[in-house]
Simulated scan of single mutants.
Amino acid sequence: MSAVDTTKTDVAELSYEQARDELVRVVNELEQGSSSLEESLALWERGEALAKRCEEWLLGAKARLDAARGATQE
C-alpha cells in the first residue's frame, strides 16, 4: 500500500494500482453499511470515478498491446 492518502487525491492522478486498491476500500466500506447517507453517496461517487479510472488504464493498456502486436506482424 502507498503512503499517499489517495482519498483526497484527484482520481486522474492515480495509477491503476492506486485506483484499484482505493476502489476495493470504498466497496468494503459501502458493504459495511455503517456510513451515513451523505457519506455513502460520497463513497459511491468516488467509487464510480475510481472504476472509470481503472477502465481508462485497462483500455490504454489494451491499445498498447494491440499496437505492439500490429507492429510485430508487419
Rank of each mutant, 00 (worst) to 15 (best):
M1V: 12
V4S: 10
V4D: 13
D5H: 10
T6N: 12
T7Y: 11
T9C: 11
T9Y: 04
V11N: 07
A12S: 15
A12N: 10
A12P: 01
E13H: 10
E13Y: 08
L14P: 05
L14V: 05
S15G: 06
S15W: 06
S15E: 03
E17P: 01
Q18K: 13
A19W: 03
A19H: 01
R20I: 00
R20W: 09
D21G: 07
D21Q: 09
D21E: 14
E22L: 15
L23S: 14
V24Q: 14
V24E: 15
V26E: 04
V26F: 00
V27R: 14
V27C: 04
V27W: 04
V27D: 10
N28P: 00
E29R: 13
L30K: 07
L30R: 12
E31T: 06
Q32E: 13
Q32M: 07
Q32I: 00
G33K: 09
G33T: 02
S34W: 06
S34V: 06
S35V: 05
S36L: 05
S36K: 03
E38N: 08
E38R: 11
E38P: 01
E38D: 13
E39D: 08
E39P: 01
E39M: 04
S40L: 05
S40E: 14
L41V: 14
A42Y: 03
L43M: 12
L43I: 00
R46I: 04
G47K: 03
A49M: 04
L50K: 05
A51K: 15
A51H: 12
K52N: 07
R53G: 03
R53S: 02
R53F: 00
C54W: 05
E56T: 09
W57M: 00
W57P: 02
W57S: 08
L58N: 05
L59F: 04
L59E: 12
G60P: 09
G60E: 07
G60Y: 08
G60M: 05
A61S: 12
A61N: 10
A61I: 07
K62W: 10
R64S: 11
R64C: 02
L65R: 14
L65E: 12
L65K: 11
L65A: 12
D66W: 04
A68E: 15
A68S: 11
A68Y: 09
R69A: 08
R69M: 10
G70H: 06
G70A: 13
A71R: 15
A71P: 01
T72R: 14
T72D: 08
T72L: 11
T72G: 00
Q73I: 11
Q73E: 13
Q73V: 11
E74G: 15
